[in-house]
């Protein structure tokens, strides 16, 4: 609708319609105020901390592991569609044959106008941002953070370097590296479901928490450890934590949740950095060779 068409009576009608929608939405939302039944949530809250102290991590990656795996596919579809839409030279669609394929004009930011301080402090900032992303990733199971956050912080560091330095980006990620890291992350995430499937029959069953070290959860009788003792003595409990609470000390193990977090972070890094690379430089093999 043209915005000029909204002057006069039609504009008043539009405003009234929006107000009616606002009243409807807000009344339906306000009915939820304080009326939501806690339901099964306390049960989850009781069990989840013994898996990973961060409740959100154990919910997203353990209880919802398979759903989250499929949802990350959406990010990949986004990256794929962006590549196809911008670098249309690759795939020729029949209906648009008459058009010249979109020539990806590479966008070079003007570096010379940048402040000198900004230009020389860019590298430390980028290094510290990458280190912060890795901190968030490794602290995922125990404090706030996770794979999604790590990927987002890393790709923001990449965008920052792109804006500061243009083509001389200190964080030089080539197309091959991005595709490779995305594929590696996807396969880490998917293949971590395999051990659980082979032992228990459920895809992405958290092997490390239950079968690798059984009986660590106090009060819950663990089943006998399936993994032979030799393996456990060789590798130990890589993700075993000691929770010091006011009412005693508990041991918990996050199992494969930290590993899934790493796969997820690689996934997000690959997809979102690929989107930025394509947006700024286009998708041209000649440019890649000349770099």
């Amino acid at each position: 609708m043209d915005s000029k068409g909204l002057k006069g009576s039609r504009g008043i009608i539009a405003v009234i319609a929006l107000m009616i929608i606002f009243v409807g939405v807000s009344t339906s939302l306000l009915q939820l105020n304080g009326n939501v039944a806690r339901g099964i949530s306390p049960e989850y809250n009781e069990l989840a901390p013994y898996e990973a102290p961060n409740n959100l991590a154990s919910w997203v990656y353990d209880y919802r592991g398979f759903d989250t795996l499929i949802e990350t596919g959406v990010i990949y579809v986004g990256a794929l569609v962006s590549v196809l839409a911008i670098g249309r030279g690759i795939v020729r669609v029949k209906g648009v044959e008459g058009d010249a394929p979109v020539a990806p004009s590479s966008m070079e930011f003007n570096v010379s106008t940048l402040n000198v301080i900004l230009k020389y402090f860019g590298v430390p900032v980028i290094i510290l941002l990458v280190a912060y992303a890795l901190l968030v990733l490794t602290g995922a199971a125990t404090s706030g953070g996770g794979g999604f956050q790590c990927g987002v912080i890393f790709s923001s560091a990449y965008l920052l370097g792109m804006i500061f330095y243009g083509r001389k980006n200190p964080l030089n990620l080539s197309k091959k590296f991005l595709i490779a890291i995305g594929g590696v992350g996807w396969s880490i995430y998917a293949l971590l479901g395999l051990p659980g499937y082979l032992t228990t029959g459920y895809w992405q069953y958290n092997v490390g928490a239950d079968l690798w070290t059984s009986g660590v959860i106090p009060g819950v009788d663990g089943m006998a450890a399936v993994v032979p003792d030799i393996l456990r003595q060789l590798f130990g409990d890589p993700f075993r934590l000691l929770l010091v609470m006011s009412d005693g000390t508990y041991a918990s193990t996050a199992g494969i949740v930290p590993l899934i977090n790493i796969g997820e972070a690689f996934n997000v890094i690959g997809a979102i950095c690929l989107i930025f690379l394509v947006f700024v430089y286009g998708w041209n093999d000649e440019e890649e060779k000349s770099r």
Partner: peptide
């Protein structure tokens, strides 16, 4: 909904926020 050291594990399930929305 993060179990912090020093708190009581028994009081955690009743007081922690619902986690399904944020997830």
């Amino acid at each position: 909904s993060i179990l912090e050291p020093g708190t009581s594990a028994g009081a955690f399930p009743e007081n922690a926020v619902l986690i399904f929305g944020p997830g």
